[in-house]
Design a protein around this nucleic acid. Structure first.
Lengths: 205, 205
DNA sequence: TTGAATACTGTAAATGGTTACAGTAGGATC
DNA sequence: GATCCTACTGTAACCATTTACAGTATTCAA
Protein backbone atom coordinates (compact mmCIF):
# COMPACT_ATOMS: atom_id res chain seq x y z
CA UNK A 1 0.00 0.00 0.00
CA UNK A 2 1.40 3.38 -0.97
CA UNK A 3 1.41 6.39 1.29
CA UNK A 4 -1.39 8.06 -0.61
CA UNK A 5 -3.52 4.94 -0.57
CA UNK A 6 -3.03 4.70 3.16
CA UNK A 7 -4.25 8.27 3.52
CA UNK A 8 -7.35 7.50 1.48
CA UNK A 9 -8.03 4.36 3.50
CA UNK A 10 -7.56 6.35 6.70
CA UNK A 11 -10.04 8.93 5.55
CA UNK A 12 -12.62 6.25 4.79
CA UNK A 13 -12.06 4.70 8.22
CA UNK A 14 -12.55 8.03 9.93
CA UNK A 15 -15.61 8.78 7.86
CA UNK A 16 -17.23 5.45 8.70
CA UNK A 17 -16.37 5.84 12.36
CA UNK A 18 -18.03 9.20 12.56
CA UNK A 19 -21.02 8.79 10.29
CA UNK A 20 -21.43 5.02 10.28
CA UNK A 21 -21.62 4.82 6.51
CA UNK A 22 -19.00 5.04 3.81
CA UNK A 23 -18.28 8.17 1.78
CA UNK A 24 -19.15 8.62 -1.87
CA UNK A 25 -16.34 9.23 -4.34
CA UNK A 26 -17.04 12.93 -4.39
CA UNK A 27 -16.61 13.22 -0.64
CA UNK A 28 -13.22 11.56 -0.88
CA UNK A 29 -12.30 13.99 -3.65
CA UNK A 30 -13.50 16.96 -1.64
CA UNK A 31 -11.38 15.95 1.31
CA UNK A 32 -8.20 15.62 -0.70
CA UNK A 33 -8.96 18.36 -3.19
CA UNK A 34 -9.20 16.06 -6.18
CA UNK A 35 -10.96 17.61 -9.13
CA UNK A 36 -12.09 14.45 -10.82
CA UNK A 37 -14.03 11.58 -9.29
CA UNK A 38 -11.65 9.23 -11.05
CA UNK A 39 -8.86 10.16 -8.68
CA UNK A 40 -10.80 8.58 -5.82
CA UNK A 41 -11.98 5.78 -8.05
CA UNK A 42 -8.42 4.89 -9.01
CA UNK A 43 -7.33 4.73 -5.40
CA UNK A 44 -10.24 2.51 -4.51
CA UNK A 45 -9.48 0.17 -7.38
CA UNK A 46 -5.92 -0.14 -6.12
CA UNK A 47 -7.10 -0.72 -2.54
CA UNK A 48 -9.60 -3.31 -3.72
CA UNK A 49 -6.96 -5.09 -5.76
CA UNK A 50 -4.82 -5.34 -2.65
CA UNK A 51 -7.68 -6.60 -0.55
CA UNK A 52 -8.23 -3.67 1.77
CA UNK A 53 -11.71 -2.76 0.63
CA UNK A 54 -14.57 -4.11 -1.44
CA UNK A 55 -17.55 -2.46 -2.98
CA UNK A 56 -20.46 -3.18 -5.26
CA UNK A 57 -20.57 -1.70 -8.73
CA UNK A 58 -22.98 1.18 -9.24
CA UNK A 59 -23.74 1.36 -5.53
CA UNK A 60 -23.07 4.59 -3.73
CA UNK A 61 -21.61 4.27 -0.23
CA UNK A 62 -21.12 0.54 -0.55
CA UNK A 63 -17.42 0.51 0.32
CA UNK A 64 -16.62 -2.14 2.92
CA UNK A 65 -13.48 -2.05 4.99
CA UNK A 66 -11.97 -5.51 4.93
CA UNK A 67 -8.91 -5.06 7.13
CA UNK A 68 -9.11 -3.83 10.68
CA UNK A 69 -6.01 -1.80 11.34
CA UNK A 70 -4.65 -0.40 14.57
CA UNK A 71 -7.13 1.91 16.17
CA UNK A 72 -6.35 5.54 16.62
CA UNK A 73 -5.85 6.73 20.19
CA UNK A 74 -8.96 8.08 21.88
CA UNK A 75 -8.78 11.54 23.38
CA UNK A 76 -10.86 10.94 26.47
CA UNK A 77 -9.54 8.78 29.21
CA UNK A 78 -12.02 5.98 29.77
CA UNK A 79 -12.65 3.69 32.70
CA UNK A 80 -14.23 0.30 32.37
CA UNK A 81 -16.74 0.04 35.17
CA UNK A 82 -17.94 -3.47 36.01
CA UNK A 83 -21.66 -3.82 36.57
CA UNK A 84 -21.92 -6.23 39.48
CA UNK A 85 -24.82 -8.53 40.05
CA UNK A 86 -25.19 -10.55 43.21
CA UNK A 87 -22.46 -9.81 45.72
CA UNK A 88 -21.79 -12.85 47.87
CA UNK A 89 -20.65 -12.01 51.37
CA UNK A 90 -17.72 -14.36 51.48
CA UNK A 91 -16.23 -13.38 48.15
CA UNK A 92 -14.22 -10.38 47.13
CA UNK A 93 -16.45 -7.77 45.54
CA UNK A 94 -14.62 -7.72 42.25
CA UNK A 95 -14.67 -11.48 41.76
CA UNK A 96 -15.28 -12.26 38.11
CA UNK A 97 -18.36 -14.31 38.84
CA UNK A 98 -20.09 -11.17 40.09
CA UNK A 99 -19.60 -9.20 36.89
CA UNK A 100 -22.68 -9.03 34.72
CA UNK A 101 -21.63 -6.38 32.26
CA UNK A 102 -19.25 -3.53 31.68
CA UNK A 103 -19.76 0.18 31.20
CA UNK A 104 -17.24 2.40 29.50
CA UNK A 105 -17.34 5.80 31.14
CA UNK A 106 -15.17 8.90 30.90
CA UNK A 107 -12.85 8.87 33.88
CA UNK A 108 -13.56 12.42 34.92
CA UNK A 109 -17.33 12.00 34.99
CA UNK A 110 -17.36 10.58 38.51
CA UNK A 111 -14.88 11.01 41.31
CA UNK A 112 -13.15 8.02 42.85
CA UNK A 113 -10.73 5.47 41.55
CA UNK A 114 -12.01 1.93 41.85
CA UNK A 115 -15.46 2.38 40.36
CA UNK A 116 -18.13 -0.24 40.03
CA UNK A 117 -21.83 -0.17 39.25
CA UNK A 118 -24.90 -1.79 40.73
CA UNK A 119 -28.41 -1.90 39.36
CA UNK A 120 -30.73 -0.49 41.99
CA UNK A 121 -33.38 -2.90 43.28
CA UNK A 122 -36.29 -1.84 45.43
CA UNK A 123 -37.58 1.49 46.59
CA UNK A 124 -35.72 2.02 49.82
CA UNK A 125 -33.87 5.11 48.58
CA UNK A 126 -36.52 6.92 46.59
CA UNK A 127 -36.30 9.82 49.02
CA UNK A 128 -32.79 10.46 47.78
CA UNK A 129 -33.96 10.28 44.20
CA UNK A 130 -32.68 6.78 43.61
CA UNK A 131 -35.17 4.48 41.93
CA UNK A 132 -35.45 0.88 40.90
CA UNK A 133 -33.52 0.28 37.71
CA UNK A 134 -31.10 3.16 38.13
CA UNK A 135 -27.44 2.45 37.73
CA UNK A 136 -25.63 3.34 40.91
CA UNK A 137 -21.99 4.23 40.38
CA UNK A 138 -19.88 3.49 43.43
CA UNK A 139 -16.28 3.98 44.42
CA UNK A 140 -14.74 1.09 46.31
CA UNK A 141 -13.52 2.56 49.56
CA UNK A 142 -12.65 1.11 52.93
CA UNK A 143 -14.16 3.97 54.88
CA UNK A 144 -17.02 6.45 54.83
CA UNK A 145 -18.05 9.78 56.28
CA UNK A 146 -21.17 10.19 58.34
CA UNK A 147 -24.25 10.62 56.21
CA UNK A 148 -22.81 9.29 52.97
CA UNK A 149 -24.83 6.89 50.87
CA UNK A 150 -23.02 3.62 50.42
CA UNK A 151 -23.47 0.03 49.32
CA UNK A 152 -23.15 -2.31 52.25
CA UNK A 153 -23.02 -6.07 52.07
CA UNK A 154 -25.10 -7.63 54.84
CA UNK A 155 -26.34 -11.20 54.86
CA UNK A 156 -25.11 -12.05 51.36
CA UNK A 157 -26.80 -9.04 49.87
CA UNK A 158 -25.72 -5.59 48.80
CA UNK A 159 -27.98 -2.75 49.87
CA UNK A 160 -27.77 0.95 49.27
CA UNK A 161 -28.27 2.97 52.45
CA UNK A 162 -27.25 6.18 54.15
CA UNK A 163 -24.63 5.41 56.78
CA UNK A 164 -24.11 6.85 60.26
CA UNK A 165 -21.78 5.88 63.05
CA UNK A 166 -23.60 5.72 66.39
CA UNK A 167 -22.68 4.70 69.91
CA UNK A 168 -24.38 1.36 69.37
CA UNK A 169 -22.79 0.61 66.04
CA UNK A 170 -23.51 1.30 62.40
CA UNK A 171 -26.87 2.79 61.45
CA UNK A 172 -28.24 2.04 58.00
CA UNK A 173 -30.89 4.58 57.10
CA UNK A 174 -33.27 4.11 54.20
CA UNK A 175 -34.58 7.21 52.46
CA UNK A 176 -38.15 6.03 52.48
CA UNK A 177 -40.46 6.15 55.53
CA UNK A 178 -41.77 2.68 54.68
CA UNK A 179 -38.37 1.17 55.45
CA UNK A 180 -37.20 1.19 59.08
CA UNK A 181 -33.65 2.01 60.12
CA UNK A 182 -31.34 -0.85 60.83
CA UNK A 183 -28.56 -0.84 63.37
CA UNK A 184 -25.64 -3.21 63.09
CA UNK A 185 -23.78 -3.64 66.34
CA UNK A 186 -20.03 -3.24 66.41
CA UNK A 187 -19.57 -6.98 66.96
CA UNK A 188 -21.79 -8.02 64.12
CA UNK A 189 -20.16 -5.38 61.95
CA UNK A 190 -17.64 -7.96 60.88
CA UNK A 191 -20.28 -9.77 58.83
CA UNK A 192 -21.16 -6.45 57.28
CA UNK A 193 -18.81 -5.03 54.71
CA UNK A 194 -18.69 -1.61 53.14
CA UNK A 195 -18.57 -2.21 49.40
CA UNK A 196 -18.31 1.37 48.22
CA UNK A 197 -19.72 4.83 48.51
CA UNK A 198 -22.13 6.34 46.05
CA UNK A 199 -20.58 8.81 43.63
CA UNK A 200 -23.37 9.03 41.09
CA UNK A 201 -26.40 7.58 39.38
CA UNK A 202 -27.35 7.10 35.78
CA UNK A 203 -30.89 6.58 34.63
CA UNK A 204 -31.97 5.64 31.11
CA UNK A 205 -35.46 6.43 29.91
CA UNK B 1 -43.17 2.03 16.98
CA UNK B 2 -45.63 -0.15 15.12
CA UNK B 3 -45.08 -3.83 14.39
CA UNK B 4 -44.36 -3.19 10.75
CA UNK B 5 -41.91 -0.42 11.53
CA UNK B 6 -40.13 -2.75 13.92
CA UNK B 7 -39.83 -5.32 11.16
CA UNK B 8 -38.35 -2.76 8.81
CA UNK B 9 -35.90 -1.59 11.46
CA UNK B 10 -34.96 -5.19 12.14
CA UNK B 11 -34.27 -5.80 8.48
CA UNK B 12 -32.02 -2.77 8.29
CA UNK B 13 -30.16 -3.92 11.39
CA UNK B 14 -29.62 -7.36 9.91
CA UNK B 15 -28.56 -5.90 6.59
CA UNK B 16 -26.01 -3.61 8.21
CA UNK B 17 -24.74 -6.42 10.40
CA UNK B 18 -24.11 -8.64 7.43
CA UNK B 19 -22.94 -6.22 4.78
CA UNK B 20 -21.73 -3.33 6.93
CA UNK B 21 -23.64 -0.74 4.96
CA UNK B 22 -27.29 0.20 4.90
CA UNK B 23 -29.74 -0.99 2.25
CA UNK B 24 -31.19 1.19 -0.46
CA UNK B 25 -34.95 1.68 -0.51
CA UNK B 26 -35.34 -0.86 -3.29
CA UNK B 27 -33.63 -3.55 -1.26
CA UNK B 28 -36.03 -2.94 1.60
CA UNK B 29 -38.91 -3.17 -0.85
CA UNK B 30 -37.55 -6.37 -2.36
CA UNK B 31 -37.32 -8.00 1.04
CA UNK B 32 -40.88 -7.18 2.01
CA UNK B 33 -42.36 -7.44 -1.45
CA UNK B 34 -43.27 -3.76 -1.69
CA UNK B 35 -43.93 -2.66 -5.22
CA UNK B 36 -43.21 1.03 -4.73
CA UNK B 37 -40.12 2.62 -3.22
CA UNK B 38 -42.43 4.90 -1.29
CA UNK B 39 -43.52 2.07 0.96
CA UNK B 40 -40.00 1.84 2.33
CA UNK B 41 -39.63 5.59 2.26
CA UNK B 42 -42.77 6.06 4.35
CA UNK B 43 -41.56 3.61 6.97
CA UNK B 44 -38.22 5.34 7.18
CA UNK B 45 -39.87 8.70 7.58
CA UNK B 46 -41.88 7.34 10.49
CA UNK B 47 -38.81 5.76 12.05
CA UNK B 48 -36.86 8.97 11.65
CA UNK B 49 -39.63 11.01 13.22
CA UNK B 50 -39.53 8.72 16.22
CA UNK B 51 -35.79 8.97 16.47
CA UNK B 52 -34.78 5.46 15.49
CA UNK B 53 -32.92 6.28 12.30
CA UNK B 54 -31.55 9.24 10.42
CA UNK B 55 -30.42 9.68 6.89
CA UNK B 56 -29.22 12.33 4.51
CA UNK B 57 -31.45 13.52 1.68
CA UNK B 58 -30.56 12.25 -1.76
CA UNK B 59 -27.90 9.99 -0.35
CA UNK B 60 -28.22 6.29 -1.07
CA UNK B 61 -27.32 3.94 1.77
CA UNK B 62 -26.98 6.76 4.25
CA UNK B 63 -29.40 5.37 6.82
CA UNK B 64 -27.93 5.49 10.31
CA UNK B 65 -29.26 3.37 13.13
CA UNK B 66 -29.64 5.60 16.17
CA UNK B 67 -30.86 3.15 18.77
CA UNK B 68 -28.72 0.25 19.81
CA UNK B 69 -31.20 -2.50 20.51
CA UNK B 70 -29.65 -5.96 20.30
CA UNK B 71 -26.49 -5.92 22.35
CA UNK B 72 -24.02 -5.33 19.58
CA UNK B 73 -20.39 -5.31 20.72
CA UNK B 74 -19.10 -2.27 18.85
CA UNK B 75 -16.16 -0.33 20.17
CA UNK B 76 -16.96 2.61 22.38
CA UNK B 77 -17.06 5.71 20.35
CA UNK B 78 -17.77 8.92 22.12
CA UNK B 79 -20.22 11.70 21.62
CA UNK B 80 -19.54 15.22 22.67
CA UNK B 81 -22.67 16.40 24.40
CA UNK B 82 -23.03 20.16 24.82
CA UNK B 83 -24.29 21.34 28.18
CA UNK B 84 -26.66 24.15 27.33
CA UNK B 85 -27.44 27.04 29.61
CA UNK B 86 -30.13 29.58 28.87
CA UNK B 87 -32.11 28.70 25.76
CA UNK B 88 -33.41 31.85 24.14
CA UNK B 89 -36.69 31.39 22.34
CA UNK B 90 -35.69 33.08 19.12
CA UNK B 91 -32.40 31.30 18.68
CA UNK B 92 -31.57 27.85 17.41
CA UNK B 93 -31.08 25.51 20.32
CA UNK B 94 -27.56 24.57 19.38
CA UNK B 95 -26.36 28.14 18.99
CA UNK B 96 -22.83 28.47 20.30
CA UNK B 97 -23.75 31.15 22.78
CA UNK B 98 -25.92 28.66 24.63
CA UNK B 99 -23.14 26.16 25.24
CA UNK B 100 -21.74 26.27 28.74
CA UNK B 101 -19.69 23.12 28.77
CA UNK B 102 -19.18 19.79 27.07
CA UNK B 103 -19.54 16.21 28.25
CA UNK B 104 -17.87 13.27 26.58
CA UNK B 105 -20.15 10.26 26.83
CA UNK B 106 -20.10 6.82 25.27
CA UNK B 107 -22.42 6.94 22.31
CA UNK B 108 -24.32 3.81 23.22
CA UNK B 109 -25.05 4.90 26.77
CA UNK B 110 -28.11 6.88 25.70
CA UNK B 111 -30.29 6.49 22.66
CA UNK B 112 -30.70 9.27 20.15
CA UNK B 113 -28.26 11.10 17.94
CA UNK B 114 -28.29 14.81 18.55
CA UNK B 115 -27.78 14.76 22.26
CA UNK B 116 -27.54 17.75 24.52
CA UNK B 117 -27.61 18.25 28.26
CA UNK B 118 -29.39 20.64 30.60
CA UNK B 119 -28.81 21.18 34.27
CA UNK B 120 -32.11 20.67 36.05
CA UNK B 121 -33.45 23.70 37.90
CA UNK B 122 -36.35 23.54 40.34
CA UNK B 123 -38.37 20.72 41.81
CA UNK B 124 -41.17 20.35 39.30
CA UNK B 125 -40.17 16.82 38.27
CA UNK B 126 -39.20 15.26 41.57
CA UNK B 127 -42.03 12.76 41.19
CA UNK B 128 -40.20 11.32 38.21
CA UNK B 129 -36.98 11.16 40.21
CA UNK B 130 -35.47 14.23 38.60
CA UNK B 131 -33.97 16.68 41.06
CA UNK B 132 -32.35 20.07 41.05
CA UNK B 133 -28.77 19.81 39.90
CA UNK B 134 -29.22 16.62 37.91
CA UNK B 135 -27.90 16.55 34.39
CA UNK B 136 -30.73 15.83 32.01
CA UNK B 137 -29.59 14.19 28.78
CA UNK B 138 -31.92 14.98 25.89
CA UNK B 139 -32.16 13.97 22.26
CA UNK B 140 -33.09 16.75 19.87
CA UNK B 141 -36.18 15.55 18.08
CA UNK B 142 -38.96 17.21 16.16
CA UNK B 143 -41.70 15.05 17.62
CA UNK B 144 -42.71 13.20 20.76
CA UNK B 145 -44.95 10.38 21.87
CA UNK B 146 -47.67 10.92 24.45
CA UNK B 147 -46.40 10.79 27.99
CA UNK B 148 -42.75 11.31 27.20
CA UNK B 149 -40.74 13.72 29.30
CA UNK B 150 -39.31 16.51 27.19
CA UNK B 151 -37.67 19.89 27.35
CA UNK B 152 -39.97 22.56 26.01
CA UNK B 153 -39.01 26.15 25.38
CA UNK B 154 -41.80 28.49 26.49
CA UNK B 155 -41.34 32.19 27.14
CA UNK B 156 -37.57 32.24 26.71
CA UNK B 157 -37.11 29.40 29.14
CA UNK B 158 -36.57 25.68 28.85
CA UNK B 159 -38.64 23.53 31.16
CA UNK B 160 -38.72 19.81 31.66
CA UNK B 161 -42.25 18.42 31.64
CA UNK B 162 -44.26 15.37 30.73
CA UNK B 163 -46.06 16.02 27.44
CA UNK B 164 -49.51 15.04 26.28
CA UNK B 165 -51.49 15.91 23.21
CA UNK B 166 -55.04 16.91 24.12
CA UNK B 167 -58.01 18.28 22.23
CA UNK B 168 -57.22 21.74 23.56
CA UNK B 169 -53.55 21.67 22.70
CA UNK B 170 -50.38 20.61 24.39
CA UNK B 171 -50.50 19.65 28.04
CA UNK B 172 -47.35 20.15 30.11
CA UNK B 173 -47.57 18.07 33.23
CA UNK B 174 -45.22 18.54 36.16
CA UNK B 175 -44.42 15.51 38.30
CA UNK B 176 -45.01 17.34 41.55
CA UNK B 177 -48.41 18.12 43.07
CA UNK B 178 -47.24 21.61 44.00
CA UNK B 179 -46.97 22.54 40.33
CA UNK B 180 -50.17 22.85 38.29
CA UNK B 181 -50.57 21.53 34.77
CA UNK B 182 -50.19 23.97 31.96
CA UNK B 183 -52.01 23.76 28.67
CA UNK B 184 -50.65 25.47 25.61
CA UNK B 185 -53.33 26.03 23.01
CA UNK B 186 -52.65 25.01 19.45
CA UNK B 187 -52.42 28.65 18.42
CA UNK B 188 -49.94 29.62 21.10
CA UNK B 189 -48.00 26.45 20.37
CA UNK B 190 -45.96 28.39 17.87
CA UNK B 191 -44.23 30.29 20.64
CA UNK B 192 -43.51 26.97 22.31
CA UNK B 193 -40.81 24.77 20.88
CA UNK B 194 -39.96 21.17 21.61
CA UNK B 195 -36.24 21.15 22.31
CA UNK B 196 -35.74 17.45 22.88
CA UNK B 197 -36.99 14.39 24.68
CA UNK B 198 -35.44 13.03 27.83
CA UNK B 199 -33.28 9.98 27.31
CA UNK B 200 -31.48 9.90 30.64
CA UNK B 201 -30.23 11.63 33.73
CA UNK B 202 -26.89 11.73 35.47
CA UNK B 203 -26.44 12.76 39.07
CA UNK B 204 -23.16 13.35 40.81
CA UNK B 205 -22.93 13.06 44.57
C1' DT C 1 14.38 3.05 -22.58
C1' DT C 2 10.65 0.66 -22.36
C1' DG C 3 6.84 -0.86 -19.75
C1' DA C 4 3.96 -0.76 -15.93
C1' DA C 5 2.16 1.21 -11.94
C1' DT C 6 0.92 5.49 -9.41
C1' DA C 7 -1.40 9.77 -9.31
C1' DC C 8 -3.92 12.59 -11.07
C1' DT C 9 -7.36 16.18 -14.75
C1' DG C 10 -11.49 16.68 -17.59
C1' DT C 11 -15.84 15.70 -19.89
C1' DA C 12 -19.89 13.29 -20.65
C1' DA C 13 -22.83 9.26 -20.77
C1' DA C 14 -25.39 5.99 -18.25
C1' DT C 15 -27.67 4.49 -14.52
C1' DG C 16 -28.95 4.11 -9.91
C1' DG C 17 -31.69 5.92 -6.31
C1' DT C 18 -34.52 9.28 -4.14
C1' DT C 19 -38.25 12.11 -4.00
C1' DA C 20 -42.66 14.31 -5.45
C1' DC C 21 -47.32 13.88 -6.41
C1' DA C 22 -51.61 11.44 -6.61
C1' DG C 23 -54.41 8.02 -4.85
C1' DT C 24 -56.60 3.68 -2.23
C1' DA C 25 -57.88 1.27 1.91
C1' DG C 26 -58.22 0.10 6.83
C1' DG C 27 -58.19 1.23 11.66
C1' DA C 28 -58.23 4.38 15.59
C1' DT C 29 -59.88 8.26 17.91
C1' DC C 30 -63.17 11.67 19.18
C1' DG D 1 -69.03 11.33 10.35
C1' DA D 2 -64.82 13.73 10.22
C1' DT D 3 -60.13 13.43 10.86
C1' DC D 4 -55.76 11.55 11.45
C1' DC D 5 -52.26 7.82 11.19
C1' DT D 6 -50.64 3.53 9.07
C1' DA D 7 -49.63 1.04 5.05
C1' DC D 8 -49.31 0.64 0.93
C1' DT D 9 -49.63 1.13 -5.18
C1' DG D 10 -48.09 3.56 -9.37
C1' DT D 11 -45.84 6.83 -12.35
C1' DA D 12 -42.48 9.96 -13.36
C1' DA D 13 -39.21 13.62 -12.63
C1' DC D 14 -35.01 14.83 -10.83
C1' DC D 15 -30.38 14.50 -9.49
C1' DA D 16 -26.66 12.07 -7.41
C1' DT D 17 -23.16 8.92 -8.33
C1' DT D 18 -20.63 5.91 -10.85
C1' DT D 19 -18.30 4.69 -14.79
C1' DA D 20 -16.24 5.05 -19.44
C1' DC D 21 -13.00 7.09 -22.28
C1' DA D 22 -9.14 10.09 -23.23
C1' DG D 23 -5.10 12.15 -21.64
C1' DT D 24 -0.70 14.08 -18.73
C1' DA D 25 3.23 13.61 -15.58
C1' DT D 26 6.12 10.96 -12.44
C1' DT D 27 8.36 7.06 -10.48
C1' DC D 28 10.36 2.62 -10.48
C1' DA D 29 11.86 -1.74 -12.07
C1' DA D 30 13.57 -4.82 -15.91
Amino acid sequence: MTKRQEEVLGFIEDFVKERSFAPILQEICDHFGFKSPNAASDHLKALAKKGYVAWSPNSPRSIQLLVRRAGRPGRTDMVTVPLLGRIAAGHPIFALENVEDHLELPRQLFRGRKLFALKVQGDSMTGAGIFEGDLAILAAQPDFENGQIAAVVVDEEATLKRLYRTSRGLRLKAENPAFPDRVVSSEAARSCRLAGILVGTIRRF
